[in-house]
Design a binder for these strands. Structure first.
Lengths: 239, 239
DNA sequence: TCAATAACAATAGTAATACTATCTTTTTTG
DNA sequence: CAAAAAAGATAGTATTACTATTGTTATTGA
């Protein structure tokens, strides 16, 4: 059984909705186990997107869901864990999409190109079966995802495997990198840099364009081209 | 008058302590204008370092300084502004150090190498005249700096020029990049990527090493070598 | 040098946040 | 149908993030 088939087995696909089983250190009660739980996650994505993570509170979320704060706390310990849950879901989703789209590609350069396309969102993979507001989720990933690890107790929560999906995504891309250029000494570092700088350049090009070389002409494909150039020149120079 | 001389003129150097005049949108009352203000900034660096930004409060800071919360509020509107002040100070400091160390170098490759060295802290520039706890400040920059712009109202606060020192640092490095490789189309993007990924890889190598290729052997120079390879292969490939 | 004024300390208070606890009602399930 | 689990309703606490007021001590500038 190949790794992709294994992944498919880990999910249940029902009526166009993908379910990922996430690490139970992320929640108190599995939000996938009830309609209310799903609503909490779904509406939290919309609310974090519109308020920003700092301004987002469980009280506001409860009002949105039509329930009470206490009920939200029955699902998630605090808002950081909820964000971590959302970001983990996204990492799993991306890993899944990557496998799906790489399945029939044999050329490692094409694989890397596809991965960059996915990360920079230049591939319009349909949001069929996603269940959540895709725009909101992607914006949250860009603006808030680094807040899940940029905390004092990273190492403590890391023990509970909460970064496993991220590490798996990072490893998968690192493997493609090594496949493309076996002599390159930093495949994982380049992979994490690729993931993070894709997001960061998207953020900068939208909100602080002076930190980038984005302009009216290259706008739509700027991040993809910049990151693509960065990765391939680096690897080709290390061949 | 060259740009470096201009910069020197912008500062006053007194008894080994460097003072930078920072944007007054950052504070209510200039902390450089009193001994208490300096204490507030200095001890906030120690406290943010030891508690992490999320756990850090003005009440705790006031206790540390031996004053009251109300007094701290007379200097800074809130803790986000204080962090922004600290990070701005660091950006100005780095820009100053960069100019100082690049002064007598003519070769653009050597200039870039020096810049990378400074960003990855592999150059032990003496902390003489810094006035603050250098280790704490550098750790804050690595772990907390992105929180100053990853907020909902980035564009609003950007109007007050609070990211100017960052943009200046980014531009300065971008100019060296263009000097080294005039045909490279993304000098500012590469510059911001260089700055941010230097910090991120330092963070990952310390706290989530599985996302990098750090090991016992390359530990001390890992980030510098990775980033150096990334930048030079990218630029050499675009010549 | 004295009078004004700014700086700071001390204290108090408010609204919101981040929770926890308890009790009742509803829903699920064995 | 009974037991158990989930959710609703309500209440309450500690901490955070401020604002306001008043009195005292430095500073400074006429």
């Amino acid at each position: 059984m190949d790794i992709f088939t294994t992944l498919v087995h880990q999910m249940k696909i029902m009526a166009y909705t993908i379910h990922f089983k996430l690490n139970d250190a992320l929640y108190v009660k599995d939000p996938e186990s009830s309609a209310l739980g799903k609503q909490i996650v779904s509406l939290s994505i919309d609310l974090i997107y519109s308020l920003g993570f700092e301004t987002f509170t469980f009280k506001k979320l409860a009002a949105e869901v039509g329930t009470t704060e206490a009920t939200v706390y029955r699902y998630f310990e605090n808002k950081h864990r909820l964000l971590l849950y959302i970001i983990n879901w996204y990492w799993k989703y991306l890993d899944f999409q990557l496998n799906l789209q790489l399945k029939n590609i044999t050329d490692s350069r094409k694989k890397l190109e596809k991965a960059i396309g996915l990360l920079t969102e230049s591939i319009s993979d349909d949001a069929e079966g996603m269940g959540y507001n895709k725009t909101a989720l992607y914006e949250i990933v860009i603006s808030e995802s680094s807040k899940v690890y940029l905390i004092k107790d990273v190492e403590e929560i890391n023990k509970h495997q909460v970064f496993k999906p991220y590490k798996e995504l990072c490893s998968r891309i690192a493997d493609i990198i090594t496949d493309y250029c076996p002599s390159y000494p930093y495949p994982k570092s380049l992979s994490s840099t690729l993931i993070e700088s894709s997001h960061l350049q998207q953020f900068f090009s939208l909100h602080l364009p002076g930190l980038t070389d984005v302009n009216e002409k290259n706008k739509s494909s700027y991040t993809q081209h910049f990151v693509s150039n960065l990765v391939f020149q680096t690897l080709d120079g290390n061949k």
